[in-house]
Design a protein around this nucleic acid. Sequence first.
DNA 1: TTGCTTATTCGCATGATTTGCAGATTAGGT
DNA 2: ACCTAATCTGCAAATCATGCGAATAAGCAA
Lengths: 151, 151
Amino acid sequence: MRSPEQLVERFRSEGLKITPQRQLLFSLLHENAEHPTAEALFTTASAQMPGISLRTVYQTLTDLTEMGELGQVTFDGGAVRFDPNLTDHHHAVCDQCGAIADVSIDHLDAVSISKPNDFSPSSTSVVFHGTCARCTMPTSNLDKPTNNQTK
Amino acid sequence: MRSPEQLVERFRSEGLKITPQRQLLFSLLHENAEHPTAEALFTTASAQMPGISLRTVYQTLTDLTEMGELGQVTFDGGAVRFDPNLTDHHHAVCDQCGAIADVSIDHLDAVSISKPNDFSPSSTSVVFHGTCARCTMPTSNLDKPTNNQTK
DNA sequence: TTGCTTATTCGCATGATTTGCAGATTAGGT
DNA sequence: ACCTAATCTGCAAATCATGCGAATAAGCAA
Ligand SMILES: [Mn+2]
Ligand SMILES: [Mn+2]
Ligand SMILES: [Zn+2]
Ligand SMILES: [Zn+2]
């Protein structure tokens, strides 16, 4: 996703209005690597802007997605999660705390994934389930990750 | 998933009852490679057994899943799909007709998928999105696949 | 500034999927 | 045939997301 400034520019150039709700969401999404749900963003947004509507959060997220500025991912039938990282990448889901980490495509030997016969893949997604570093770490239970389970 | 006969045996041995509803679902799921949803199974089941409850379909599917006799998969936030194929495998989703095909693990060079750093994967799933053979096939629009979109 | 036009926000209804609950029914044994 | 626990069924309710219309406000023109 582009920077809030660039998004403002794009919205203006397309005749869309710059509302405080949109600006807040732009900033909450900017470089956000947490893959938040609409509800999570709504909660965070509400702290800074009491009264903002969940409907508006959904609306804005949908708009950004349709504009190609935001990605969506879902895991195991959970709620949709929004992803400002538009680069081609995959995900690692921690079954302990629910954290979702990006897995850069070059961490994988992508080309080695041969396509199944008689099927023309336009995209491939890989999802790892397991335990993240923070949840594995035996010592230092200080600052443990918040349980943010997918399911 | 094991055969209907074997399932009947297992249910009996566990003191569970053999009802016509269960037997019907056993047969509908047996070697079913369509990855049907609960609704789809309910529709098919209703044809053979008018009056069967959707609730019972869900209940039986959940039971089989908890017994480890049935797998569940979801794609893009769609409804849960049930999978009697318990072997380790992946999936190819046709964006045209919604068909979901199994992709045998040996079609992939699984070991070459190096795990991301500081994450201990317990399972890896690969999903291809694209166009299936039947939807690609230029000639022979005879017997086209039913549109069974995930979303 | 003031006022106008129309995009946007908001609250609520609705849809889709799945589960909780409790009363009616039935499988399977005595 | 009868008992009883397991099962089935219908309906309420939870969750997540979208449709809709009235109220609001951004951007612009005067
Ligand atoms: Mn990501
Ligand atoms: Mn499968
Ligand atoms: Zn974790
Ligand atoms: Zn197809």
